[in-house]
Nucleic acid binder design. Sequence first.
DNA 1: TGCCAGGTGCTCG
DNA 2: CGAGCACATGGC
Length: 272
Amino acid sequence: MIEYVIPDFNIDQIARSGQCFRFRREEEGRYSLIAGGKWLDIEQNGETVRFSCTENEFEGFWRDYFDLNADYGRYKSKVAKRDAYLRAAVETGSGLRILRQELWETIICFIISQQNNIPRITKCVDGLCTLFGEARQRANGEVYHAFPTAERLAQCTPEELSPIRLGYRAKYICATARQVASGAVDLEKVACMKYADAKNELLRLTGVGIKVAECICLFGLHHIDAFPIDTHIRQMLDAHYPKGFPLTRYRGFAGVMQQYAFFFELETQNNR
DNA sequence: TGCCAGGTGCTCG
DNA sequence: CGAGCACATGGC
């Protein structure tokens, strides 16, 4: 167990922001997370955050995963004073971070995300891990499952995935797993590419279109200039930026602004 | 009950 | 090239 004081960090907002589907809310202010095959408990009280790992594990993996070396105060300070919408969004999601998630896992999670809602995406991802992910043990002996490898999923037929209730996405997942496992699409190469090239390469994967490719770039490759446009963002753009979103103003980190806006739309969709 | 959810692939013209 | 349509599933 290790404890830090971290500004611009809110685990509740991050867990509910729909960028990662392996958070579980254990109780008020307490979450668990599986990433990089590792289990982590997180507990937050104000700016004080406790992580269930050693300092070495934190410095060697989780600090980077939570993007803690980036200064989100600097991103926020770039928001235009007159932009009432984005200012409200940034205030509401003041503790968001763009997590540095594993590429393969991000590809599959966002193929699942299409025409789907966050609770059910979470269920599907959980089912995929439980059925095909490598079983691991926590310090207390409890078993959890890592995210299944491309090689494992490449052996699956859509019928074998049917208990997960992925719907028509099951065949996309099988096809994409085969493309990756065979090396037809080389993820190690994709990881070294510039944003535009990476996006084009990802578009070759079955079930990956523009929007999903943008999400993979943003969350799985940390190309924070990627700007995914989904139904919520589409509505938001039409309502608040009829003349177009000021992408040039936020060139280089527009994806961070997108994430504040996306979270804000999630938070406010009930009362509107 | 029909609409919607972090869309994509395919098929026409 | 772009509009239109099918595609699975579950919650409201």
